[in-house]
Structure formats: C-alpha cells, structure tokens
Amino acid sequence: MLALFYLFAAISVISALIVVSARNPINSVIALIVCFLSIAGHYILLNAQFLAMVHVIVYTGAIMVLFLFVIMLLNLNKATEPMKSLGMRVAAITGGGLLFITLAAAIRHGVSIQSANPFDAGIGLVRSVGHVLFTEFLLPFEVSSVLFLSAIVGVVMLAKKEKHQPNASVEPLTEAERARRTA
C-alpha cells in the first residue's frame, strides 16, 4: 500500500511539473490527464471509490476532453509562449515565493497535528457519501445545484441565436439594450 502511495505520489508530482513546464499545450493537457488519473489512484487507496470514479468521469473524461477539443479547434500545435513583461515576472516570482514560504511553514507545523476523527474506511463509499449529502449537507447540495442550473440557463442564453433579427446591426449594444435582452 505504501509503495503504491509513493508510486502515485511520484506520478502526480512529476506530471504536474510537466503540465507547467511543457512548451506544447497538448503535452500539458496529456500530463494533466495523467495527473488526474494518479489522483484518482490516491482516492482509491483511501477507499473513496465513488469519489475516484466521479473524479475520472468529470475531470478526466469530460473537462479534459473539452480542453483537448479547444486546443484542436484552435490548432495550437506550435509551441507558443508570449513574452511576459518584466513587471509580470517580478510579480509572479514574488507571489510564488510567498506561497512557497507559507506552504513550507504550514507543513513544518502541520506534521504533528492529529486528525480529529480516526480514519473511517467506509467514509468514501457510495452509501455513506449519499447519506451525508442528503441529510447533513442537503442545503449546500441543493444550493450548488441551483448554481449549476443558473450556469446552464446562462450558457443557453449566450448560445441562442436571435431569430427575429437575422440582419441585426453589428453596432455594439447600448447598456440599456443589453440589459433588456438578457432580462
């Protein structure tokens, strides 16, 4: 088990490094897919089978397919790396360094923290996840589904062609007109 953990951990870290360092966007996407699969492996090691499978279906199977889809449609085959300005670089290095210090400090003080509850091997099974979701966390669960619904309605609004004005003027809409149409 421990060997498997180190194997998955190594795959996760190395593939995550490739995601940010690869010059070709398609290599980044493939490395990210590998990274997600190895994280699903971690979930299975924790006996969270449901989470692992949903993770694979949603992230690896749907979201990454859309990433790949966009890259293919835009044909980002060549390595494109726009040069960043000096200010951007300084800001990025400072931000990354501060995050690194915070993480290092957190890990240094975090190793001795005991978990509040002993690890329950059944916590990630479908039955327990479903039970908790529909009793203790029912309200957040429903609220997040409303959030998804509003996102879906928004996308349909944006994607819908306006059939009434096939030759509508291309002039930018006024603020009032835009508000009227989205209402």
Binding site: Q49, T60, M72
Partner: peptide, 28 residues
C-alpha cells in the same frame, strides 16, 4: 465486483475517446 461497477464502466467509456482524439489529431 466493486461497489461502483456501473460508474467504472462509465469512467472507462469517458477515457475511451482519447485514443480516437489523440490519434486523429496527431495525424496532422
């Protein structure tokens, strides 16, 4: 017979598209 067998079938089906996508894209 994992507890999440149906989801496993789904997960593999959703990964299955990568072979076609990568092969088709890589052909240039």
């Amino acid at each position: 017979d994992p507890e999440i067998g149906v989801l496993y079938v789904f997960a593999i089906a959703s990964i299955g598209v990568y072979g076609i996508m990568l092969g088709g894209w890589a052909s240039n």
